[in-house]
Structure formats: structure tokens, C-alpha cells
């Protein structure tokens, strides 16, 4: 009898301790920055950008900026390549781009700077480089359901931890030769979910990957818009308006592209035309039913 009571007390103590060990996890915050890679000694040490000369069509590289000090990324290299592949696929129809190359992160050395980019340019024959940075924060807190952890099966079955993953991705497009920033865009996402104490690490990895996926979708849309604005701005002769480096764009035939140069067109019907066609179809259908009745 005494042994049974002692066993019960010890079990209860163990359960309470286990429940105490499980609780809110500290938030994680992982950042990498393209500017850290490009200007390892700070922006004030940077040389001013030269005049930009772009000869279309361009060869463009895409890469995630490397982390300083080899910090661990929240996603694997394979996941990074897939995300960059999606960005590349979104721009492959652009006539100004002849080739899009996803550059593995190992080609970029931490704090490598423009010298590193120049090496890549010579090796892969690239004109422009798109460098992607990210900022991801993950928060995990216990919810009211966490009282069930006091039971034996609670931690196994109940997902009483609430996870929030906030991701921001930023893409900067540089002309490697002139070291000029041409344009930039950002994408962001928030992913919420639940986990149990036993699978919280795995779930956080899953949410981290989801966060990057959603942020990439947002980034692609914003990059499209930024590219269109840059195209218009560049035709007027400067990268981003007065006070920024001058830019000259030339077609494949060597002709200067200006604000009055040609553009591509599409005969594309939109939702209004579809609605009009649907309205006519509905009126015909109603008319036929009335005639039969």
C-alpha cells in the first residue's frame, strides 16, 4: 500500500514536471540580408554606381543571399532552389530576358560583395543578379488546451501550442557591371497553426517552409509590378528618377530603347466580357424555359 502511494506521488510529480517543461517556446528570429553580403564593410564604404548600360535581352541570375557566419537557414537549399525556380518561371516569357539562372547559395561566399558577384558573372555569363533576403520570426505559445498535458495522452493527442510564422522576403536586382541597384520588391506572409509539445519542432519547420511559399507568391506579384515601373522609368534615362544613375537600354539590334520605343500587345478578354456573355446565355436559357412551359 505504501509502495502504491509512493508510486502515485512520484508519477504525479513527474507529470507536473513534464507539463512544466512544456510551455511557450522562445520566439525564433532568422534574418539574412543582401546588403550584408554586398557591403560587408558598410554602405558608407561603397563606391557610387556607374552609368548603367543594358543590352537586351539580358541574362539574369537569382540567388538567396548567404548568411553571415554560416547561420542555419529555416529552409533547406533544395527548398530555396525550388522557390527561386518559381520566381524564374514567372518571368521566362519576358522578352527582355533571354535566360534565367538559379544560382546555388554555395556560389556566394558570406560577405563576398561585388567581387564575388563579378566572379559569378564571369563564370555564368550573367548581366543582372537578383538577390533574395528574408526575415522570418516564429512564435509558439500554449493555449488553454495545454492543461491536458497533465494527462498521459494529452501531449500525444492534443495540439495545444499555437504557432505564428511571419515571413518577409525582399528581392533586390543589381546590374553587376555598374553595381547599381535597379529596383526591388518584397513579399510577405503570415502562417498560423497548432502543434503538440511532441511535434512542435517538426511543425515549426513545416510552417517555416509554408511561410516562404506564401511569401514567394506575394513577391512574384510585386516583382512584376516593380519591373513594369522600372521599364517605364528606365526609358526616360535614369534608374529611379533624377539623382540616380543614368541608364541606357539597347535592343538586340543595337538600337537605343527610349520612351517612344515599341511595346508588346495582347488581345485579352477580361472578366467584364465573360460576364456579358454569361448574361446573354442566362437570358437565352430563361427564354427557352418559358417557351417550353
Amino acid at each position: 500500500m505504501r509502495n502504491c502511494i509512493a508510486l502515485l506521488v512520484v508519477s504525479l510529480l513527474v507529470l507536473v514536471l513534464t507539463a512544466g517543461c512544456v510551455g511557450s517556446m522562445p520566439p525564433t528570429h532568422r534574418v539574412n540580408s543582401a546588403l550584408d553580403f554586398l557591403y560587408p564593410h558598410g554602405l558608407t564604404a561603397a563606391a557610387p554606381a556607374k552609368e548603367v548600360v543594358l543590352k537586351l535581352p539580358l541574362r539574369v541570375g537569382l540567388a538567396f543571399a548567404p548568411n553571415r557566419d554560416y547561420q542555419r537557414d529555416p529552409i533547406t537549399e533544395e527548398q530555396k532552389q525550388k522557390l527561386l525556380g518559381r520566381v524564374a518561371a514567372a518571368f521566362k516569357e519576358n522578352k527582355a530576358i533571354s535566360h534565367l539562372e538559379v544560382v546555388p547559395t554555395i556560389y556566394l561566399q558570406p560577405a563576398g560583395g561585388f567581387a564575388n558577384l563579378d566572379q559569378i558573372r564571369r563564370s555564368l555569363g550573367l548581366d543582372l543578379m537578383v538577390l533574395v533576403s528574408y526575415d522570418q520570426a516564429q512564435f509558439t505559445e500554449s493555449t488553454r488546451a495545454s492543461w491536458t498535458y497533465l494527462t498521459v495522452v494529452g501531449p500525444l493527442l492534443i495540439e495545444g501550442e499555437k504557432n505564428d510564422t511571419r515571413t518577409v522576403m525582399d528581392a533586390v536586382v543589381y546590374d553587376i557591371d555598374s553595381q547599381a541597384l535597379l529596383f526591388r520588391a518584397a513579399g510577405e506572409s503570415t502562417v498560423s497553426g497548432h502543434s503538440s509539445p511532441l511535434n512542435v519542432d517538426r511543425k515549426r519547420r513545416v510552417f517555416a517552409a509554408e511561410g516562404f511559399e506564401e511569401a514567394t507568391k506575394n513577391l512574384i506579384g510585386n516583382l512584376n509590378a516593380a519591373l513594369a515601373r522600372f521599364d517605364e522609368q528606365a526609358r526616360s534615362g535614369t534608374v529611379q528618377g533624377p539623382g540616380t544613375p543614368a541608364i541606357a537600354m539597347y535592343s538586340a539590334k543595337g538600337e537605343r530603347i527610349t520612351a517612344t520605343s515599341g511595346h508588346s500587345g495582347g488581345g485579352a478578354l477580361g472578366i467584364p466580357e465573360l460576364i456579358l456573355a454569361a448574361l446573354i446565355s442566362i437570358s437565352l436559357l430563361l427564354r427557352r424555359r418559358a417557351a417550353r412551359a
Partner: peptide, 10 residues
């Protein structure tokens, strides 16, 4: 609808 950058409806 959305079109690639540089492409406009006519």
C-alpha cells in the same frame, strides 16, 4: 487580367 511585364492589352 494579368499579363507579363511589358505587355499591354490593345
Amino acid at each position: 487580367g494579368p499579363l507579363p511585364p511589358g505587355v499591354h492589352v490593345v
